[in-house]
Amino acid sequence: MFDLDTFATGLAGAAAQEVDGGAARICELCVSSLPVAGAAVAVMAHVNRREVVYASDDVANELEELQFSLGEGPCVEAFGTGRPVLVADLSLVVDPRWPIFAAAAARTTARAAYALPLQIGAIGIGVLDLYRVRGGLLDATQLTGALMAADAILWSLLRLRAGVGIDDGAADGARWLTEGRRSHTAVHQATGMIMVQAGVDAESSLARLRGFAFVNEKLIDEVAGEVVARRLRFDERAADDGVPTSGGGH
């Protein structure tokens, strides 16, 4: 029986624990808690450039490699469209979106696949792929768990890619999961504002926002609110050493 609260606690722990092993630990947690046989994480710069950062078993790895070499499949589709791709039956459905992959996947033991994009708005860094040996879909609660796992992996990878050390980065992925029932609207708006202020892309912008929140022991939503209210700026020069300026501009 899948228990969402226990799973969420496990995710927060896994996200907080280590920098480079976060994705692996979260995948392991998915395999042990959700009704799936395997899990893999592909990090993608774009559809044709990607790297499998973790695969829980040979089948999970093979599914990744197949899609990578064929350039099609649920994972490729999820990354390209920015939406989850949930396939209840890989063997029967020759999906027009991935005819060659479907034939190849039928030779593995995988019968259902769920590809969940790792994304926040325009920031898309990869896909969490889950598979199982019997067909069917995750129920609503299990899907919630899988979506939360994708969020946790996203934060873990963002931290790694931003080069944030474990000391300052620890627990902030977990914070996003546990910060409460929020929309984070200001976080997304501030991400866009900091992009312009510091001249960086959306991913770096979010990483700076998050790093600042952590160092100052504030919630990311609070810091974002200050940015949107134009009481805090992350200027280009100051951003080099990660120090934003206060009260600048308007």
């Binding site: 469209t81 939406r83 997304h188 866009g192 504002m193 992009m195």
Partner: peptide, 21 residues
């Protein structure tokens, strides 16, 4: 579809930030 719609909303917030700044 729901997840796609939710993510679209997030992109719009990010774009509002870019334009606003």
């Amino acid at each position: 579809q729901l997840q796609a719609a939710l993510n679209s909303r997030v992109i719009i917030e990010q774009a509002k930030g870019v334009l606003g700044e």
